[in-house]
Amino acid sequence: MQFQLPMTGFVALYVCMLAGFAGWVIIGRVPAILHTPLMSGSNFIHGIVVVGGVFALLNAGTKLEQAIGFFAVLLGAGNAAGGYAVTDRMLAMFQSSATSTHPAKAAHKHPISAKAPVVKKV
């Protein structure tokens, strides 16, 4: 078994075509309300480039390659970690009406409106 999977021209093109098509179809379904987390989410996914960086840096033969490789892994790791952190934060904020009354908000929520129905009944 090899560490790298060589693909000849046309097989590679097939893979690219199918992947591109899959991306187009999947993203096309995402509602506009989620476009920002989606963009940072897809941004996170191309952070997989860090794996390529690790491979290249491990195979670095010269000082120059080591220096470039170090920055490639540094940047790729930043892409992946940062992309995940912001996407996760944003998505956690999206709540439906049914679930949005989390205790933290309910506590500071209207002391006045809580009284309002009582007033009406009297």
Binding site: Q4, M7, G20, I27, I45
Partner: peptide, 14 residues
Amino acid sequence: NPALMVAGMVVGAA
């Protein structure tokens, strides 16, 4: 590395 190819192309199309 096909994983990079697939992830990259998906994001490119998106």
